[in-house]
Amino acid sequence: METILVALLPVSFLIFLGYLFKRIEFPSIEFWQYADKFTYYVLFPALLVYKLSTASLNEIDGFAFISSSILTLIFITIFLMLLSKFLFLFDGKAFTSIYQGAIRFNTYVFLALTDAIFGDSGLVLAALLMTFMIPIINVFCISIFSIYAASSKITVISFIKSIIKNPLILGCIFGGLLNYFGISLYAPIEKTLGILSSAALPLGLLSVGVGLHIKHIKEVKLELFSSLFTKLALFPTFIFFIGQAFGIQGQALAILVLFGSMPTASSSYILARELGGDLKLMSTIITAETLVSIFTISAFLMLLQGYF
């Protein structure tokens, strides 16, 4: 219990500190917009290259690890589509926001918690998971938009470009290739990446706090509850049992559950805005999941204490 609190509380404090900075407009709203972009395009790719280029990848069963995540994603997708069709009949735009809230994950929180609990070995597994799941989740989300929101604002070519140019995926691939071919970075460059890496997680968590919109949570609606329950309860439960069925144990299984427990990504709002989703609901889901996940992640980590 103490280990979990030591890992989780600093992450929570940094998120709320970011929200406080936004409320008092310190240093300015514009600063945080640029800081978030800098973190996304520079600091986190540096972190991923730095960690992956020197990691030990020999003992990872990548196929079972990734397959567990993909299969869980498929089950959650089918569950939500059946829920919408036969029970609650959600509005199409609302469903796209519910869906994004139920399957996307906050990269900053995921990497920060993985690093705090599992260290470098955990970050390697997290990066491996991200490399595959970021493009796959985007494919699923855009497919749902095409079905439920009848959006034609994105083409196959523009989607492929967005994946190829994703700095997090590029960081994972570049770091992994350096590792695979046994290429060592020039010492000053490696140390530079190390210094940049140390700034990635705290600044990323502050940006998560800046992105919260607590005032939007005025009343609990069925759409909000559906997304919350699916993402913070069903997803981590499903991925736990599917991972066990694939024979995954120990730290790898714990990281899968941690991945499944993450609140949805702040970038969900951007996709909803571009493809015609329910913006108000999306903003509410992002904020509510980020706040509630502090407690649900704690609960799942306590259940998984034997795995780390």
Rank of each mutant, 00 (worst) to 15 (best):
L177G: 02
F259L: 13
L83H: 13
T155N: 12
A94Y: 07
I29G: 11
S184H: 09
A127L: 00
S68W: 03
I117T: 04
L89A: 13
A102L: 00
L258Y: 01
F225M: 15
S121P: 12
S68C: 07
K22A: 08
L113Y: 01
F105L: 06
P202D: 05
A245K: 15
F16N: 03
F16Q: 02
C172D: 01
A126C: 02
S84Q: 14
K22H: 10
V139L: 15
F16T: 02
D120P: 13
A35T: 10
F159H: 10
A149L: 03
K161I: 05
C141M: 14
I195L: 15
L228S: 11
S121G: 14
L14I: 13
S162D: 10
L17D: 00
F44W: 05
H213Y: 07
T296K: 01
E223N: 11
G243C: 02
I242G: 00
K165G: 11
K153F: 00
S226A: 15
P45K: 06
M130K: 05
A150H: 15
F75D: 06
G119P: 02
P202Y: 04
Y108W: 11
K165L: 15
I142L: 12
T72S: 06
S184V: 11
S267L: 09
A245S: 15
A127R: 02
